[in-house]
Simulated scan of single mutants.
Amino acid sequence: IARELHDVVAHHIAVINVQAGLARFVFRSDARTAREALDTIEGASGEALAELRRMLGLLRADGVQGADGAPAPGLDQLDEMVTRVRTGGVGVELRVTGTPRPLPPGVQLCVYRVVQEALTNVFKHAPGAEAAVELAYRAGEVTVSVTDDGPVEGLDPVTPAERGGHGLIGMRERAKLYGGTILVGPRSEGGFGVRLTLPTPVQAARRGDAVRE
């Protein structure tokens, strides 16, 4: 619950904050941009409310679904997340490689939250940077990487706290829960990167879902 709450609040509030500032700045000079910013705020706040309701449901009932039956976010919502981040001024490219296949809900939620946290960190620590999200379906595993070309001055390459904090801890906990690995830190070619690898054999997927339940 703590991980979920952090990820939902950090991401959606970051988007709302950026868009509110934009709307205020162009309120009199560019009505169209202001309206688009307000539309994004409406959508982000609505999603945040829906996810908070789902989490409250988790406190009352078992399973991935909340009391109202709303499913947890999954890979089919990555496009929507990327679009929302783009409206905040971060250029994001989403690429999918390999042959998509059904994945357990818990694995999908893990991937979704790691991407969400990584893009939120770009918002907060590297505004104006260009980012790329790559989801790769491989034999026996799925990997997702989020990279950006933002500045990394002052970051500790071993424990890059300025780009992670509690969110980095949450990403590592999620990866460990499903038997995966995660690498986070500055890239040799510049910028910052997050790379998550999760095993997806049938037995691993079932074991992950059992832990989730």
Rank of each mutant, 00 (worst) to 15 (best):
L59P: 02
A118E: 00
I169D: 04
D149M: 05
G208C: 13
T143A: 14
L52N: 01
G128W: 02
Q65F: 08
E213L: 05
R195C: 02
A31M: 07
G150L: 01
V194Q: 03
G74M: 00
V107C: 09
Q203T: 12
Y112I: 02
L109D: 04
D7S: 13
P157C: 12
F25A: 15
V211Y: 04
R206L: 11
E80H: 14
G150E: 05
V115Y: 10
L52M: 12
L94I: 07
T83V: 12
A161K: 11
G164N: 05
M55T: 05
T87A: 08
I41N: 01
G74V: 00
R53M: 05
V111E: 03
A61K: 12
G164R: 11
D76K: 08
F123D: 11
Q116S: 11
G170W: 04
A50Y: 01
P71R: 09
E93C: 02
A131Q: 03
E130K: 12
T33Q: 12
T99P: 00
V96I: 15
H11T: 08
A131R: 04
V146Q: 12
V133Y: 07
R172D: 03
T147R: 15
V202T: 11
E213R: 14
D62L: 14
V82N: 02
E141W: 06
I16N: 06
P201W: 06
L52D: 00
L5G: 04
R84H: 07
V15N: 06
A67T: 06
E47P: 00
A136K: 15
G63M: 01
P102I: 07
